[in-house]
Simulated scan of single mutants.
Amino acid sequence: MEIANQAVEKELTIDDSKPFVTKQDVAAADSETPAYEIKGPRGYVVGIPVGANFAPEFRDSAGAPIDPSARVTLQKCDRQGNRLGGKIAITDLLSSFDYEQMRTDPDYFRKVTKPLMIDEDELVRCFIDIPAGSNGFSASESRLTIGDDTSDFGVPAEIVSHSDLTTEESKAVKRASTRGGR
């Protein structure tokens, strides 16, 4: 997947509008299906730094909020989709998030606690573990925002073309990717 007309380094917000982000419905009691998947675009490295905003608005097919006791986890996975235990950027109960307040009031921001580097074809997934008996996650009714590239107080995610990295930076990215990365 190519990202046209990218600058050498570009700050961005990761959300549903990005071509490297996909989402799908998740049934209650299904903790293995990711609600969102961020796949590193060919030729690029995407970075999610510590302190980047993490703002989920997860709803069911009727548009109602998901059970607040559902657990949300943003985690790096290997290229086969298996979770990497030490690569959890954030995990919390859905009750900890208020999407509307988080988008406007820095006091309500929830932030990534571990940085993630997503090299080309690498995966970061957002899982939502919804209790059995609750309504499932509707991809069409939900949204997720990671990073903030529009305000003075938010921390953006970044995307960099491999061709714009120095030789040393490129080697470091490849080494990190081979070991499961950050």
Rank of each mutant, 00 (worst) to 15 (best):
K18M: 12
Q6V: 14
D30I: 13
S138V: 08
K39G: 01
T22E: 00
E100I: 02
Y36V: 06
P68G: 06
R110K: 15
P115W: 07
A139T: 10
L12E: 05
L116N: 01
S161V: 06
D121Q: 14
K114N: 10
T91W: 05
E120C: 03
F109K: 09
V45C: 00
T91P: 05
D149G: 05
I128W: 04
G81N: 11
P115Q: 14
D148E: 10
G136F: 02
R110T: 04
T33S: 12
S95E: 14
G81C: 07
P56C: 08
K76W: 07
L94V: 06
E57M: 07
K114C: 07
E169P: 02
S61M: 02
K174E: 08
L144P: 00
S96Q: 10
Y108E: 02
G180R: 08
V155Q: 01
A7Q: 15
A62L: 14
V21A: 00
D98N: 15
V173M: 13
R71N: 09
K18N: 14
E9P: 01
E169C: 08
G147N: 03
V155F: 08
S61T: 09
F153Q: 13
A132Q: 08
A4G: 00
R175M: 15
S69P: 02
V46C: 02
M102I: 06
A132D: 13
D15N: 15
E11R: 13
Q24M: 02
K39D: 05
K76Q: 10
V160S: 10
R79V: 08
S95D: 13
E122G: 02
G40S: 10
R143S: 11
I3G: 05
F97H: 09
P65F: 11
L12H: 11
V45S: 04
C77L: 04
P106C: 00
T166A: 05
E168C: 03
I90Y: 14
G181A: 07
G147C: 12
D67C: 05
A35K: 00
S95W: 09
T73A: 04
T113Q: 14
I38A: 04
H162D: 14
F97R: 03
G86V: 01
T22P: 01
E120F: 13
N53D: 08
R103C: 05
S95Y: 05
T167N: 13
D78L: 04
P41L: 07
I146K: 03
G81Y: 09
P65Q: 14
D152H: 09
G51R: 07
V45K: 12
I118L: 09
L123Q: 11
A176K: 15
T104L: 13
T91Q: 12
A4V: 09
R79A: 02
I88K: 11
F109R: 15
S163C: 06
N82V: 09
A28M: 10
E2H: 06
K114A: 13
I146C: 01
Q24H: 04
R179E: 09
V50S: 09
D121S: 13
G40F: 02
Q6W: 09
